[in-house]
Structures are given as C-alpha cells and as structure tokens.
Nucleic acid binder design. Structure first.
Lengths: 138, 138
DNA sequence: TCATAAATGCAATAGTATTGCATTTATGAT
DNA sequence: ATCATAAATGCAATACTATTGCATTTATGA
C-alpha cells in the first residue's frame, strides 16, 4: 500500500499524519499478522518505545487495530477490517495461533459461528481463538 | 467441597497435599470464576507470591486449571471440567467476560460451535471469548 | 522413623505496561 | 506562507506482572 493510501487511513480515523504512524500501519499491512508492542520496538528502533505504545493506543481507540486475546503476558494487536469503526467495533473473526512458530493471524475466510448464551447475558463482541499448527508448520 | 474431596483432586493429579494447594482449589471452587495470580495474592496474604505462582503452574500442568486468553496484561485461570486430563486437555467451552464488573466466568451451558478452517491448518484447541454484560450487570 | 524429592519463602531480576513533563511537530486559521 | 495551538514525541521514571536461584522446610513412601 503506498503512502497516500496510508495517509487516507489516518485521515479517515481523524488521526494526525506522522512518520511513526505511517510506518506502523505499513508494517501491519506488510506482515499481515498480529503484532505486539515488543515486535514494533524491535522493528522500529528509531522510535521511542512510548511513541509506539501510544501509536498502538491511538489505533486501538480509532478502530484501526483491535486487541487479540491471548494467553501470554503481552498484548497483541491485529488490523481491523474495513468495516470496523469506533462505533461498530465487532471483531467477529477467527484468530489462529500456531503453537509451533507462534504466529497469530486473522483468518479472514472463517467467520465466528453463532453462540447461544444463558438468559440474561448481553453479547458485545465474540472472539474465537484457535490454536494448533498453521499452514506452514503442519 | 470439603477437605477430603479436595485432597482427592490433588491425589488424582499426582500432586502433594499442601495447605496452599488446598486453599487455592477451595477458592476457585467457591468463587466459581476466573482468577489471576493477583487475585490469589490479595486473598492469601499468608502465602508467598511465588508459592501461589507455582501453585497455578502445577495446577496448569496437571490439568486442574486452564489458562483463559484475555486482552489484559495478566493471565487468568479457570477450573477445568472433570473430563480434563493432562493428556486430553481440550477446553472447548465458552468464557464470558463482563465489561461492567470485569468478571470472567466459564459458561458451562454453552459449548463451542464447530469452526471450519482453511486447508492445511490443524486445530488443537478452540477458545471462545464472549464479552458484554453478565446476568448481574445487565 | 527416616531419607529424599518436592514445596516453600525470600531475594533478586526480567519483561511489559504506564505516566509526567518538556520539547517538537502537524494542522487549521489567518 | 505564517502563525498559534493542540497533538505527538522523546526521555526519565515508575508500576505491575512474571520468573528464576537458592537455602530451608515439609510431605510422602520405604
């Protein structure tokens, strides 16, 4: 994705255009998998850790990224679909974590099946986390 | 659950019977919800943080507890069903997190629906995390 | 009762998340 | 194009969670 398209993404989410934000978006698009703050720190040594931390925060708030639940200590983030907005922020897709290579990716091809909850519960979002072996590792 | 029953649980999982383990099991049974290490530290000031940490570790390994994926920084743990064993450790149940009170609980009544994955993926376990409002908060 | 491996407590360290504040920069208004 | 201003950045410091090493204590089977 070229720089103009990435600028449009930021503008659409009412975020100022800065180098760090453009680079982080680009990295998510290129890697096409879930990333943690640590991943970004490792990739972008030219930016301060706190800047990357706050970049993730602003992307989270504006709906560019979503947090992916995981069992590890550190938070991981994935790109939202085009349909996501701060108002309608339902990330009803399936995330797959490979137990071999550790990669977490969003499976666009798989949608979250309906789930029935007991009486009195109100559903906001549904996350499905599947782990096992990915295409490359199996 | 009385103390003899809790001792049986430990024996069944080939763990030595100690006060901290008995107390932690009891607490999980009483609370009937997911707990973090921090929760245990707060509840059991008479035990060292590391002891509780290792208690969780041994329960995890032996199949008494399972880790619940979540978006927060800290790991949360829930009791396994009776059917769980170190060998067959599939936690295919639904976890519900209330956005109001923060409680994470296992919904025994709801089972995880089947999910279809792209070609080449091997599924090990499936976790479903639903959030919204729980029975008490809605 | 006793030897031994396992469990505990304490101290220390590592890793991740978060805030305050001074400085720099992007942006809209002029 | 310039400028005022709010937003973003970098640095320093701190908080919280996770983890390991080691000496001491304890549960367990012989």
């Amino acid at each position: 994705m070229n720089i103009e398209e990435r600028k449009v993404i930021l503008k659409n989410h009412k975020l100022r255009i800065t180098n760090s934000r453009l680079d982080v978006i680009d990295h998510f698009l290129t890697m096409n998998k879930a990333l943690s703050l640590g991943d970004l720190e490792h990739t972008f040594t030219e930016y301060d850790r706190v800047t990357l931390y706050r970049t993730l925060g602003s992307f989270l708030e504006s709906g560019i990224l979503h947090k992916i639940p995981n069992e590890e200590g550190s938070a991981t983030y994935g790109l939202c679909h085009e349909t996501c907005s701060p108002e309608d922020h339902t990330h009803n897709h399936v995330h797959f974590k490979c137990n071999q290579c550790g990669e977490i990716a969003c499976l666009d091809g798989s949608s979250v099946p309906a789930v029935s909850l007991p009486e009195g519960y109100q559903v906001s979002t549904v996350n499905m986390i599947v782990d096992g072996l990915c295409k490359n590792c199996s």
